[in-house]
Simulated scan of single mutants.
Amino acid sequence: MLKAAEIGPVLITGCSSGVGRAAAAAFRAAGFETFATARDPLALEQLRALGCATLTLDVTDEDARRAAVEAVERQFGAVGVLVNNAGYGQYGPIEEITLDEMRRQFETNVFGGMRLSQLVLPGMRRAGKGRIVNVSSVAGRVSVMGGGAYHAAKFATEAIADALRPEVEPFGIDVVNVLPGPIATHFEATLLKTIPKTGDDSPYALFKENLARGMRAFLARGGFGVMTADHVANAVLKAATVARPRTRYNVGFIAKFGPVGRALAPDRLVDAVSRLVIPNKGS
């Protein structure tokens, strides 16, 4: 493991709860100068008490993105590790998700992290070192019905990382993705609120009821393969501090074996099983 002094300061997005909060606490406990960010600064009081520096940051706001990076660079010269964690899950049938909702999903989950990466890279190049850790998801490797918007954003995160990594490697910079399976956090509550409410006469009414029920069970604490935020935060810390990181860290049973099973199974079989798990009218 590299030491905090060798790596430099850590900037983490989406620290109001869940993995972001747990990661900020883990980095601070390991001795890192840790900048925890969120849209609501009041949500960061607990991390401030632990010794984290806190910044207000909406990852979709260019002025806020620039201000956050500049705040770190004024004090330390360059960001040592950027942890792109901020995000949420837009769920529901593709037909009923508006383009504005899809744009918000990509602005937060894809473009926010991509732009922050662009902003920290000049400082990292000058320092001759740096690491970008993206909290991605098994959803970036396996796409299932009801989660098309979220999966599309996570697939994009994976594709961007694969292109960026060899581009910046000559400058001493690495890009690592952490892909968790299901996590018991507030993610579920936010996810359920995104399912479009289009009335009882929607052709997807039954599907959306079953989708909500299925996601509650999938993300329930104590469920099969469901992890804690701390479990994932430890993987993020490892991805940021090992001397020779893997390009990806699949965290948990489902993240490790789900993509393998999906790659081996025919598409039509996966479709049929999905319709059994989340039934719709006419299924």
Rank of each mutant, 00 (worst) to 15 (best):
T56Y: 08
G87F: 00
I94K: 09
E107C: 05
M102A: 15
E96K: 13
N84Y: 08
A86F: 00
G92N: 02
R65D: 09
E95P: 03
A68G: 09
D58V: 11
V79E: 07
Q75I: 13
A64T: 13
A71D: 00
G77S: 11
Y88A: 07
V83G: 03
Q90G: 04
T54K: 10
N85W: 00
G87C: 02
G80M: 02
E62Y: 08
Y88E: 06
I97F: 12
A71I: 01
R74K: 14
I97R: 11
L57D: 01
R66H: 14
A86T: 03
V72E: 10
M102Q: 15
P93L: 03
E73Y: 07
G77Q: 09
G77P: 00
F106W: 08
L99H: 13
N84G: 09
D61R: 00
R104T: 02
R74Q: 14
V83K: 04
R103D: 00
R104K: 10
E73Q: 13
A78W: 01
A71N: 05
M102V: 12
G92P: 02
L99G: 10
E62N: 05
D61A: 01
N85M: 04
V81P: 00
F76H: 15
Q90H: 07
V72S: 07
R104E: 08
E107L: 06
F106I: 04
R103H: 06
V59K: 06
T98N: 03
A78D: 00
E96W: 07
A68Y: 05
I97E: 14
L99A: 14
G87Q: 01
E101T: 11
F76C: 15
Y91R: 10
T54C: 13
R103M: 02
F106K: 06
R103C: 00
